[in-house]
Amino acid sequence: MSLEITRMNPHFADVMPQEYTDLVENGPFGRDFGARDLGSFKELFEEHPMCAGCNLSLAFRIIVASLPNPADTIMVGSTGCNSIAFPQLALHNVHSLFGNQNAIASGLKRGLALRFPDKVKDVVVVAGDGATADIGLDMTLHSWFRGEKFATVMFDNEIYANTGGQESGMTECGEIRNMAPTGKKFNKISVANLAIEAGCAYVAVVTTASPLKISKCFEKAVLVAREIGPTYVQIYTPCPTNLKLKSSESVSLAKERSKGTYQFREHVSPEAEEFLAARAEKTEEQVRVTSKDEEMHSA
C-alpha cells in the first residue's frame, strides 16, 4: 500500500522538520480533500518560485488538489514553466526531455500496470502548449491513437513562456511574438479537435477564470483515463510576465477570453458518459447514506 510511504518511522518523528509532519498530519493522502477545500489542508504543491500572478501555477495548484488518489499518482511534466513548479510537488514526478512527456507516460503507465495489476496507478501528464502541440505533438497524438490510459493536461499560455515569449502553435493568428516579428501566420491549433478525432474519451477546454470548473473537468479526466482511455484537458493560463500584464489583469484576461475566443467545451464519449453517470449515482447514494446516518445520530 503506497500510503505507507507517506507515514514516518516513529524513531525519527521527533527530528522531522515541521513541513513533513504537516504533510503527514494535515495532507491529502488517504483523505477526501479537493479544490473546494484549498486553504484547509496542507497542500502537495507549495512555495513555488513562479512569477507573481502566474496563471499556470494557479492551475497547477488546482489540479494537484483535485487528484482523486494522490497516494497512487505519478505525474509527468515537460521542460517549460511547469518544470519550475514540479520540483515543489510532494509526489513522484518525472521531468525527462522537452516534448517527450506522453512517450514517458506511455511507458510508465504500462510498466506500472505490469507491476501492480491489482491496483490503480494514475499517471497524469502536465505540459505547456509548446511541449504538447509543437515539439511533442507526434507523441501527444500517438499516445491517444494507441489508447494509452492516462490524462494529458495542456497549460496553454499561447506562448513559449520559459524561453522568453516566442510564438507557439497555440498562439492566435496575427499575434506578434518573438520569432513571429510580423505576426503569426497561421491559426491556433485546435488540439481539442485533434484529441476528439484521435479517440480521447474525455476532452475539456477551460480557463483559469473558473477554478472549480478546472477541478471538476480534471477529476473526470483522471477517472475516465483510469477506466476507459486517454483524456485531454486544455487550460488557458495567460502569462502576465510575457504579456506584460499585472496579475489582476491576467485573470481578467482569462475571464474575457472565456466569454469569447476561449469558451468552455466538453466532449464526453458515450462510454465515458455512462461511466461518469454510474459513478455520480454511486456517490449520490453514498451521500444519501451518510446524511441518513447523520440524521439517525442527531435523532
Binding site: 505507507e4 510511504i5 507517506t6 507515514r7 514516518m8 518511522n9 524513531h11 525519527f12
Partner: peptide, 22 residues
Amino acid sequence: FPGPLLLWKSTEEALERGRLVR
C-alpha cells in the same frame, strides 16, 4: 543523517534499523 529509506515506510526492518541508529 537518516535518509528517506529509513524515515518513511516503516517496515519491520526499517523500525529495527531506526531503533539501532538512535
